[in-house]
Structure formats: C-alpha cells, structure tokens
C-alpha cells in the first residue's frame, strides 16, 4: 500500500485528525498572540508587578518540559481538583500558556530594547506622541518581532503532537492508529513528515525572509 493509497483509504480519519490539529493550533495561536502581546505590553508598562510576575512564570516554565506540564495538567491536577476535563481543552490550555509566555517575552524584550532616542528624534522634529507611536515605534517594533513570532508559532504547531499523548485525536494520534492497523510506518510517518514540512517550512522561510528584508539594523543606538 503506497502513501497515496493510505491517504485515500484513511482520508476521513486523517482529515479529522488534521482538523483537530488545526483547531488546536488556531486556539493556541489566537490566545498566544492576543494575550501574549497584551501581557508583553502590560509587562513593559508595569514592570514591577506584571513584568516581574511574567518573568517569574517564564523562568519557572523554562524548567518544566512541555510533556511534563501537559501530563501534570491532565492527570494530577484534575485528580487533586476532582474534575474531568476534555483532553483537547487541557492540551489547548497547556500549549496556550506556553505560547502566551513566549509571545509576551518577545514583545517585552522588543519594547525594552527599543532605542528611546528614536522617540526623542521624533519629539525634536515636532511629531506628536500619536505620530511617534504609529509611525516610528510601532512599525520598528513590529518588524523586529514578526520573525520571532512566526518561528514561535511554527514551534507551537510542532508541539501540538504532544497532545496525542493525552489522547487528543489530532493528526499524529490518527497516524499512529492507522499504523497500528496496517503497519506501514515508513509510508505513514513519511506522509506525516511531508505534511509538517509543507506547513512549517514556508512559515520558517517567511520568517527568515522578513528578518532579512524588514528587520532594519538598530545598531545606531
């Protein structure tokens, strides 16, 4: 049975798995980008409270492997709280937390490293605060964070594979189940690798292209 034949035969299952993966990604990306950017900005503005809390959480989380966090949220925490949460929600929550903290770190670092002199140069040229923000600060910071944001989101897509380990029926789990019934690991996992390559490589390529073409040298500071 070739890769194509496997895909055709199990297309419903694979499509279902793909949809779960994409749904998981959509949640993780949305929460990560919206909440991460907001928290990153708030962490920069209120360094003492929000900034330090975010740094502490990031530091704490950097010492916990993703898999351990996922399992801890899925088994012990639910056991302690005597609740039973859908594994999909648990995976979405765990990966969203990781993404939110990663994005907020990127945004906070970009804001902290932003050379204040560009703002002063705008002031002495008679620009208003709003103009400085919209025409100088925002575009420079956006150009700086977009490549890192893209690569982080690609990593998050790859991390969704871990959701299969707490029984989320995403594409990897479906591929595993198909393999268990037909035992064609080379074909099945090659197809899976191609699927991830097709999604991840263009995004990573775009990140590199943006970095080269739009992230200007800020070394003047």
């Amino acid at each position: 049975m070739s890769v194509i034949e496997i895909i055709i035969k199990y297309h419903e299952g694979l499509l279902g798995g793909l949809l779960v993966t994409l749904k998981l990604c959509a949640i993780i990306w949305t929460f990560g980008i919206v909440a991460g950017i907001s928290l990153g900005y708030l962490g920069f503005r209120h360094k003492l409270w929000i900034g330090n809390i975010l740094s502490s959480f990031s530091f704490l989380l950097s010492g916990v492997p993703v898999l351990v966090l996922l399992f801890w949220l899925h088994y012990p925490l639910q056991e302690i709280l005597q609740i039973n949460i859908d594994p999909f929600i648990t995976a979405a929550a765990a990966l969203s937390i990781i993404n939110i903290l990663a994005v907020s770190d990127i945004v906070r670092d970009a804001l902290v490293e932003f050379p204040n002199e560009y703002i002063i140069a705008g002031q002495v040229c008679g620009l208003k605060k709003r103009q400085i923000y919209l025409q100088i600060q925002f575009p420079i910071i956006l150009r700086k964070i977009i490549p890192s944001l893209l690569t982080t989101q690609v990593s998050m897509l790859q991390l969704t594979l871990f959701a299969s380990l707490i029984s989320v029926e995403e594409i990897f789990k479906v591929a595993q189940r198909i393999n268990a019934s037909v035992y064609r690991p080379i074909e099945i996992y090659s197809a899976l690798a191609i699927f991830f390559l097709l999604i991840c490589l263009p995004l990573n390529g775009l990140a590199i292209w943006l970095k080269h073409n739009y992230t200007r040298n800020l070394s003047e500071k």
Partner: peptide, 10 residues
C-alpha cells in the same frame, strides 16, 4: 542633530 544621528531605520 544628534551625535548618533538616530535616523529611523524602517
């Protein structure tokens, strides 16, 4: 005109 110029890089 600043010593380090601060020409906006974007």
């Amino acid at each position: 005109v600043f010593q380090q110029l601060f020409i906006w890089p974007h």
